[in-house]
Design a binder for these strands. Structure first.
Length: 602
RNA sequence: GGACCCGUAGCUCAGCUGGAUAGAGCGCUGCCCUCCGAAGGCAGAGGUCGUACGUUCGAAUCGUAUCGGGUCCGCCA
């Protein structure tokens, strides 16, 4: 069902083995870099391979001459896949050593047929071979609602997971809850002060390390509902602010607060249509002694020691002083300095917990891990990569995707990220304003490592400048054509199955064939995007499909014989409807990866 | 001072893991609706891919150096 490029690559490799058998090529050559691709310039044919240039060195032959031999061997073979129904091709050699392949249109028509038969499963691949991949994303601290930056990571992670699934990987979506450490203490104290306020205490201004957000008022109310005045002591906030309170309430409030914050976050995620297979708790990990166990692993390999770090170059922290501490030999794995595992109060650093966490993920079967982080964690990538290498002896791979900042605009004017009235701060407000589908698509219209401007006016505009609208409109237009066709040819079977049986040879206009070629590239695009861990490529591809489709539609304005629906010619109409449905299928298939609902009408 | 990310058309950005004459949208210029598919269409101008060396059949892509912008920089997660 397939990928025409993959099919031809196999054909090329078969031709090469013919040459090897005949002694023209040495045995056991490296074929990894041999590719079959669409040439950028259509005049070079339909497919192109670099095989001769890749092998020229190894075979000690002139690339052009080798290309001729490969082309000849290729001509002696034929496409045996049933899809192609014996359609032929020609191979010719071009300048540096390319072999350009031209297909009979029937080969392309077969691709369209395959797309219709597959439905939104078109493009599904098995390159993943069911291998397990763990995608950890969002992992926003449970201290408040999500903001827009989290939203980007959420969408990128979710779409990447979906893409990998489409490519045949067994994917686990995971959220790491940072529910241990100082921030959770601060959260509980902040909640406690809000709770005191409910009893009429006037606490005045909050100190700097407290969370001032209004959302904690609701949480405090829920706490009061549950526990009444159980924790209330009049004007206790004075002691809390000074840090001298008798904090018997701290532990229970922590648990309560984290649970409430996670409920908040899950709601935000649900508004984006995101759910996780697994939530992992840092606290649970720490309490289970996972850090000690993980550091034992490193210790056995001599990677943990007590030492004194050089002071950081340049500007020093105010209170920096040399001090012996427990360190991980990150420098052995490419990091700049060895990294601390314990703080001055002898508690674990976040990094120590993260080491344990990644070992945990690995042992659960994730020898391929992807972490999606915000750009502010960029300085952290090397040490975690170093830890993963050290823990697994290089058996595991970790790919960290850093998402750059999202800046909000409205009609070109920056939207302040402050709590002022009328401005958006939380992810939820943005999603409620523009809708889940718009937000998700726009977050995927940039590479993750590229900063993104998000303009409320532009992303909701109904014009071709707006990529979401443009792609959605293509799907809606296809649906509209089908509705009209159903009226025009009442009683005819216009199901995809029926359309797949149409005489597709009638699709002979260059614009039609160009569109079919583009659609045929979908399986290949899915594979390459999945391998590169780059879901944004789908967004650009979908815009291209939409553009070609809109173009074809528009041609029908000037040339009536190119319209999709030709009243007096059911045979031609059915063939063209097959193409229309092919477009809708690919667009829907791509939007499904993005978690965006295809529009039936605009 | 160091690390990471970015630098491609006036603007916003792609560029399929090293392929052929570097692309798209917006903007700009010029055409195209007395009527049916103009929330449009066609054509054109616009580039030393930040810069300089290097690697090889071949570099926007890989390496080194350098310049500019962003992010981060023991005991924050």
């Amino acid at each position: 069902m397939g990928d025409i490029f993959g099919d031809f690559r196999r054909l090329v490799l078969a031709a090469l083995s013919d040459l090897a058998a005949a002694g023209t090529l040495p045995a056991g050559v490296d074929i990894a870099r041999i590719a079959v691709e669409p040439p950028r310039d259509p005049s070079h044919g339909d497919l192109s391979t670099n095989a001769a240039m890749v092998l020229a060195g190894q075979a000690r032959q002139n690339p052009l001459q080798l290309a001729e031999e490969i082309a000849a061997a290729l001509a002696g073979r034929e496409l045996i896949t049933a899809d192609y129904r014996g359609s032929g091709f020609t191979a010719e050699v071009a300048r540096p050593g390319f072999i350009n392949i031209r297909l009979e249109p029937a080969a392309w028509h077969a691709q369209l047929r395959a797309a219709l038969q597959a439905g939104t499963a078109y493009g599904d691949s098995d390159i993943g071979c069911g291998r397990r991949v763990n995608v950890e994303f969002v992992s926003a601290n449970p201290t408040g609602p999500m903001h827009v930056g989290h939203g980007r990571g959420a969408v990128v992670g979710d779409a990447l997971a979906a893409l990998l699934m489409k490519a045949g990987f067994a994917v686990e979506r995971e959220y790491y809850i940072n529910d241990a450490g100082a921030q959770v203490d601060a959260l509980a104290r902040s909640l406690y002060v809000r709770y005191l306020e409910l009893f009429g205490d006037d606490v005045g201004d909050y100190p700097k390390d407290f969370y001032p957000g209004d959302y904690l008022i609701d949480t405090a109310r829920k706490l009061k509902e549950r526990d009444g005045d159980k924790w209330y002591r009049k004007n206790e906030h004075i002691k809390v602010f000074k840090g001298i309170s008798d904090e018997t309430w701290l532990q229970p409030l922590q648990e309560f607060a984290v649970a409430e914050m996670m409920a908040l976050i899950r709601d935000d995620l649900a508004a984006l249509g995101i759910s996780f297979d697994r939530f992992s708790s840092e606290k649970a990990l720490v309490e289970a002694g996972a850090i000690d166990k993980a550091l034992d692993v490193l210790d056995e390999r001599g990677l943990v020691y007590t030492g004194v770090l050089e002071p950081p170059k340049g500007k020093l922290p105010d209170d920096w002083e040399p001090r012996p501490q427990l360190l991980f030999r990150a420098t052995q794995f490419g990091d700049e300095v060895d990294r601390p595992l314990k703080k001055s109060d002898d508690s674990w650093t976040y990094f120590a917990a993260d080491i344990a966490y990644h070992l945990d993920k690995y042992r659960r079967g994730g020898d391929t891990m992807i972490d999606v982080w915000g750009a502010d964690h960029g300085g952290y990538v090397k040490r975690v990569n170093a830890a993963v290498q050290a823990l697994t002896n290089g058996a595991a791979s970790l790919d960290v995707k850093l998402c750059q900042l999202v800046s909000l605009f409205d009609n070109g004017q920056p939207v302040r990220m402050s709590k002022r009235a009328g401005t958006f701060v939380t992810l939820r407000e943005v999603v409620d304003e523009v809708g889940k589908d718009v937000f998700r698509f726009i977050m995927l219209t940039r590479r993750n490592d590229q900063a993104l401007d998000f303009d409320f006016a532009k992303v909701t505009e109904q014009s071709k400048d707006n990529p979401v609208f443009y792609v959605q409109y293509a799907h809606a237009r296809a649906a509209s054509v089908m509705r009209h066709a159903a009226e025009e040819f009442a009683g005819a079977d216009l199901s995809d199955a029926a359309l797949a049986g149409a005489n597709l040879a009638l699709l002979s206009d260059p614009a039609e064939l160009a569109l079919i070629r583009l659609l045929a590239g979908w399986p290949r695009l899915v594979e390459s995007a999945a391998e590169a861990h780059e879901p944004h490529r789908l967004a650009f591809y979908l815009q291209e499909v939409a553009a070609q489709f809109h173009l074809l539609w528009t041609k029908g304005r000037d040339e009536a014989q190119l319209r999709f629906i030709i009243s007096g010619d059911p045979g031609l109409t059915v063939a063209r409807l097959a193409l229309v449905r092919g477009v809708a299928t690919v667009v829907a298939s791509g939007l499904a990866v993005f978690g965006v609902t295809p529009a039936e009408e605009m």
